[in-house]
Amino acid sequence: MLRDSYLRLTRVAVLLLALVITTFLTLPSRVWAHKVNVFAWVEGDMIFVEGYFPGGKKAQNSLVEVYNGAGAKLLEGRTNQKGEFSFEIPAREDLRIVLTAGMGHKNDFTIPAADLGGSKTSAQAPVVETSETVAPLPSTTVDMSKLEVMIDEALDRKLQPVIKLIRSTRKEGPGLTEIIGGIGYIFGLFGLLMYFKSRNRNR
């Protein structure tokens, strides 16, 4: 009798699980995630934006808006199937990139002006000076602006794996430290509450 009801329960459980799986296979992920992450990096003249949920799921077709330091909107677009969106650097100042994934999910990422590389004008000024001082050796003089572009390209190439690493580590959810810490906080908090309540009663 008891075994019978357990059997029936197991059968129901299996059925429910099957239903759960099929529902999950057919629905977009953005709805039940806790939060959306956004990460942006600079490559040459382009800024790449990537949106993803904890666990690495991409934030597809999400609205990306780019604001300057003053809060004016510079441009907007939507992420592609890979959760990525790229655009040419609109201005060499602090850029705030806001990603809205819908259903209450939103996050932003700020690229400071310093990360966008020297602006063309300020970088070229000292270049002229140096080429003048190095003038006695004409054979070794290289077009400095060309050299800068070459260095930038080489750095982008070399930094590719590092950026990839940063992107992948940022995808990890909360660690054990935070979890244990949080549970500690909870028990501490309620312990404190109990302490104060019992003190009131004893008085």
Partner: peptide, 30 residues
């Protein structure tokens, strides 16, 4: 007072529950 420990335990359960992502298909339940 008698209820506080219960509340604490269930708060902890709630706190951790949304971290436990049961991977189902391409996504996860929490």
């Amino acid at each position: 007072n008698e209820k506080i420990p219960q509340v604490a335990v269930l708060t902890a359960a709630f706190f951790v529950a949304s971290l436990i992502r049961v991977p189902v298909g391409p996504s996860a339940v929490h």
